[in-house]
Structures are given as C-alpha cells and as structure tokens.
Design a protein around this nucleic acid. Structure first.
Lengths: 208, 208
DNA sequence: CTTGACACGAGACTACAGTCTCATTATGAT
DNA sequence: ATCATAATGAGACTGTAGTCTCGTGTCAAG
C-alpha cells in the first residue's frame, strides 16, 4: 500500500525547476524583463506550475543562473597562468568583472532589484533566496598565491573589503549616486583594490 | 481678462508636492511599505492628484526626504570639533552612517529597490530620479582638514572610493552576498576606509 | 492492471499600479 | 465680489502579479 514517504518524483521536480531557471536566464540574456507568464511559456509549463516552484517572479530572477555572464575564475586565471603578484591578479579579476557588470547591466540591475524585495514589497512572502555570490571565488582565486603570506583574519578582512568593490553594487554607486562614467569608475576601483591589497600585505609583514 | 500665462499657483503645487513626500517619509519611517493610496491618504489628497505629481509610487519613495535618518555632517562634526586626523574623522563618519543604515535598513532597502527600477520593470516610465546623495557631503566634511594635503585627482579618487564603502550598498553586500553580521561588517569597513585614506595621503606625499 | 498519490493545466478570482474622464473646488487677477 | 482657470476629487477602466480550486494525466507500488 501507500508509498509511505514514497519517492516524491524528485527527478521530475528537479527537471521542472531547472527548466524554469534556464528559461529565465535565456530571457534575461536577450534583454527582456520577463514576467511569470513568459518564463512559464519559455519553460513550456503552465503559469500555475511556475508559481508552485517559485513564490514570485523575483525569486526566479534572483536564482537564474549567470553562466556566461559573470567571468569564471578558471577563465580569468587559466591553469598555466604563472602570475603571483596579488595586486596584479586582483586588478585583472576586477577588470574582468567590471567589464561583465557593465555589459550585462540591465540584467544585473534587475536581479539586484529582485533580491531587494526581501523586506520590501511583500513581507508576506518570505522566500526570496539569498544572493548568488560569484565574486568571492574570483577574489579567492586571485589571492591564492598570496594567501599564505596573510594571516587568517587579514585574509578574510581583505576578501570582504574587496567584495564591496567587486560586484554590481559599486556600479550602482558610481552611476546612480555619483553620476560617474564607466572608465572613471574603473580607475577609482583599480586604485582602491591595489591600495587595499597593499595595506593587507603590509599589515601581515608587520606582524611577522 | 485672461491672466495670460497666469501665475500657476506655484505655492499650492509646491505645498502639495512637499506634503506627498513628507507623507511618504512618515510612512517609511514607521516601517510600512506604502502604496500610492496610502501616501495619498496620509497626505490628505486624492490618489489621482498623487499620480499628477509623481509618475509612480517608486518615484515618491526615492525622493522621500531622509531627514533624521541619515546623519547630517554638522551633527557628526560640530563647529567646535577640533579633530584634524582625516582617518579618524572618516572613521567617525562611517560609524555614524553605518549605524544609521542598519537602523533604517527596511526603508533604505525599499528606496534602493525603487531607484533600481530604472531599467527594470518599466522602461516605459523614464522618470525615476537619480538617487539622493547624502554620503558625499559627509565624506567631504570629514576630509576637509586634509583636503589641502591631497592633490585634486587624489582627493576626488579617494572620495569616490569611500563612497563605495559608505552607503546602503555595502550593507547589501555584507548581508545578502557575504552573510556577514553588522559588527563584523563594521570592522571590515573601519579597516578599509583607514587603509584608503592612508594610501591617498601617502600618494600625495610622494608627489611633493 | 489497478490504484492512490502527486505533478500539472486551465481558468476564475483578488489586489494593486497606473490612466483617463468629468465634475467640483479653490486660487488669484481684476 | 467676480470670474476664468488651475488644481483637485471621485471613480471607472486596463493590465499584471499572485492565489486558489478543480479536473486531468502520470508515475510507481502492489
């Protein structure tokens, strides 16, 4: 009799969920601002089903995969890369992410806005997931050659500080708050990340 | 006869507009997420009138005054304040803004989300104004005693870099991306702003 | 094959954002 | 005080986000 806590068709469900996220990513990549109907249609499921998997369109957009949008660490630092200077590597990583952020500005703005609805529009729906974090792997890969030269607290402090500078949010500050163009923003960030890396290295020297 | 391009009742209009913004600010301060009906009711005007002054509820929320929410420079640095060390002053300003941001997190998240709809939801309505900028006056006041010791490019570069760290956006990074608590965030920012100020000072020394 | 649980589709329903029209009120010039 | 008109109020109307219900198809255990 009854399948107890029977196999809950996990395969089917995972596939449906993945299809929805992939559909959202496709639509975002072509510059659209999809509503739930479009995502559902693109994923070839009904709207009701889409809402069974995600409480709101925002939740879908926040979780939509960013493959091909945000640079992969292995792409910025290939296996045969011999660079060791952490400042240069951090600067290179920042340059790549900077370029990607401005190139996909519309999509990233949309995803950031969607993630902010947490407290905002619907305190009723509690489910919007935490942001994706593609910047930390990038930062850690850039800092890898220097990691042993930094104390643990200095290292995590530096990573966190760089995370403020690396993502979409700094683009928002430069554009919407400061009214600054992309090139100037890049020079400011270049200077800042180098200053922070240098300061962290110096702190750890002192400690030895 | 006709009052030509007669007085356009500017008083009345300014008063109505101000009432709407003040009403929005009151509702935001009590933690609500007001819709246009609520703002209009609180301002004691009809919904239609509210929409005559602002193209969307988002536009109202972005422009809602932040008096008493974001610390005023004159309050952080009173006239009789004799401090001159730029790092200490910047740190003090950051501490004040940090506290304010976390205290009014809900409102600031809402205002940020509203301002992001620029490209997002409605490409149809083009009217959402640019963000308010309360951080730059604070940063400039903190840096005032050291301004003459910095070259013009170094100064504006430092201001821009600090602006990345000072506002709501860094709180979003620490909370939503890094999952970091308020105290740890504060220590990271304290370290970062001091490192940046020191680096800027050192750059300018070198130049002399 | 049968059967029960589960995923799904279709569509009605509520709530809010934003637009529009028309009647009413209030302002300021005369 | 009077009058033309700008500002407003009332409310209908559209479109979309999200909820809910019910009927259908399908998977898997017996």
């Amino acid at each position: 009799m009854a399948t107890r806590i029977t196999a809950r068709r996990d395969n089917q469900r995972h596939r449906t969920r993945k299809d929805l996220l992939a559909a959202a990513a496709r639509l975002l990549k072509q510059g659209r601002t999809p509503d739930m109907d479009e995502v559902a249609a693109e994923a070839m499921v009904s709207r009701a089903t889409a809402y069974r998997y995600f409480p709101s369109i925002d939740a879908v957009l926040v979780e939509a995969p960013l493959d091909g949008v945000i640079p992969d660490p292995r792409q910025v630092f290939p296996a045969d890369d011999a660079s060791t200077d952490p400042a240069d590597r951090i600067d290179r990583a920042e340059a790549a992410l900077h370029e990607a952020c401005y190139r996909h500005e519309a999509q990233l703005r949309l995803m950031l806005a969607a993630s902010l609805e947490r407290t905002a529009k619907g305190s009723r729906r509690d489910a919007i997931p935490v942001r994706q974090n593609r910047r930390t792997p990038l930062i850690e890969e850039a800092l890898a050659p220097a990691r042993r030269r930094l104390s643990k607290p200095a290292y995590s402090r530096l990573c966190a500080a760089l995370a403020m500078i690396f993502g979409t949010e700094s683009m928002i500050v430069f554009q919407d708050v400061l009214g600054m163009d992309q090139r100037t923003a890049r020079t400011v960030k270049r200077w800042a990340v180098r200053a922070l890396v240098a300061a962290a290295m110096k702190d750890s020297e002192r400690q030895e």
